[in-house]
């Protein structure tokens, strides 16, 4: 049976990842909450759909699942959908990312516009 990589039900896999002896959880960082908020706001406003998010994530392939965090994959997928729907262009984003990275080495410093 052919199925795509994201269709994981029944695949062989290891024991659940543990943290402090319990199945792993973590407190969400501010940037992760912002990604989640942007996803909800952009789909609510009709710039793309949850299916669009999933399509972009599924097209990343299995490597992305191992090398990128959950919200890494989400921001990449939200970006792809926003570029496709013409909300901004890839070059606008690239230029802004260069500016952001020049502001400082941490998320907190890079978040300060005009710094």
């Amino acid at each position: 049976m052919n199925k795509r990589w994201h269709d994981m039900g029944g695949d062989p896999a290891d024991a659940l990842p543990l943290r402090d002896g319990r199945p792993a959880e973590h407190d969400f960082a501010l940037w992760e909450k912002r990604v989640d908020a942007l996803m909800v706001l952009m789909t609510t406003k009709g710039h793309f759909t949850v299916d669009g998010l999933r399509r972009a994530i599924e097209d990343m392939g299995p490597e992305a699942f191992e090398t990128m965090s959950y919200y890494d994959r989400w921001i990449a997928a939200v970006n792809q959908n926003l570029v496709e729907s013409g909300v901004y262009t890839l070059s606008e984003l690239g230029q802004r990312m260069e500016q952001v990275a020049r502001r400082g080495p941490t998320y907190g410093q890079a978040s300060l516009a005009g710094a």
Binding site: L30, V35, L38, I75, Y88, V100, P105, Y107, A110
Partner: peptide
Amino acid sequence: DNDMPLTYWQCMEIAM
């Protein structure tokens, strides 16, 4: 949370 080195994807979130 915000004290770690900026990652590529965090940079994308700020820019977006």
